[in-house]
Simulated scan of single mutants.
Amino acid sequence: MKYKQREQAILLLSDGTVFYGKSIGIKGKTFGEVCFNTGMTGYQEIFTDPSYYGQIMVAATPHIGNYGIHHDENDSDGVKIAGLVCRNFSFDYSRPDAEEDLLSYFTKLNLVVISDVDTRALVRYIRDNGAQNAVICTDGTSLEDLKAELAQVPGMKGLELASAVSTKEPYFFGDANATYKVAALDLGVKTNILRCLAERDCYIKVFPYNTPFAELAAFNPDGYFLSNGPGDPEPLKQVQATANEMIASNKPVFGICLGHQVLGLANGIATYKMFNGHRGINHPVMNVITGKGEITSQNHGFAIVREDLEKNDLFELTHEHLNDQTVAGMRMKGKQVFSVQFHPESSPGPHDSRYLFDDFVAYMQSHK
Rank of each mutant, 00 (worst) to 15 (best):
K237P: 12
K237S: 13
Q238S: 11
V239C: 12
Q240I: 09
Q240V: 10
Q240C: 13
Q240T: 11
A241W: 08
A241K: 09
A241I: 11
T242G: 02
A243D: 09
A243K: 03
A243R: 08
A243C: 10
A243I: 03
A243F: 10
N244F: 12
N244C: 10
N244K: 15
N244H: 12
E245C: 10
E245T: 09
M246A: 04
M246Q: 05
I247N: 05
A248M: 07
A248K: 15
A248P: 14
S249Y: 03
S249M: 02
S249F: 00
S249H: 01
S249P: 01
S249K: 01
N250W: 01
K251S: 05
P252K: 05
V253I: 03
V253A: 02
F254D: 06
F254Y: 11
F254K: 06
F254E: 11
G255D: 04
G255V: 00
G255T: 02
I256L: 05
C257N: 07
C257R: 03
L258F: 10
L258D: 13
L258V: 05
L258S: 09
L258Q: 10
G259M: 00
G259L: 00
G259Y: 01
H260F: 02
H260C: 02
Q261W: 01
Q261S: 00
V262D: 14
V262C: 09
L263G: 00
L263D: 02
L263N: 03
G264L: 05
G264I: 03
L265N: 08
L265K: 04
L265R: 04
L265G: 08
A266Q: 07
A266N: 09
A266F: 09
A266H: 07
N267L: 01
N267W: 04
G268F: 06
I269P: 13
I269A: 08
A270Y: 07
Y272V: 13
Y272K: 15
Y272R: 14
K273C: 10
K273L: 14
K273F: 15
F275W: 09
N276Q: 15
N276S: 09
N276K: 13
G277Q: 05
H278D: 08
H278R: 10
H278W: 04
R279G: 06
R279K: 11
G280Y: 06
I281C: 04
I281V: 12
N282D: 14
N282Y: 15
N282Q: 09
N282A: 12
H283W: 12
H283S: 12
H283E: 14
P284E: 01
P284Q: 01
V285K: 00
V285H: 00
M286I: 04
M286P: 09
N287L: 00
N287W: 02
N287C: 03
N287S: 01
V288T: 15
V288W: 08
V288E: 07
I289Y: 10
I289G: 07
T290M: 05
T290I: 12
G291S: 00
K292A: 13
K292D: 14
K292T: 12
K292G: 06
G293S: 15
G293T: 14
G293H: 12
G293C: 07
E294G: 03
E294Y: 03
I295E: 11
I295G: 04
I295M: 02
S297F: 00
Q298P: 06
Q298W: 06
Q298Y: 06
Q298F: 06
Q298A: 13
N299K: 08
N299L: 06
H300G: 07
H300R: 03
G301K: 13
G301W: 10
F302Y: 11
F302I: 09
F302E: 12
A303F: 04
A303Y: 05
A303D: 14
A303H: 07
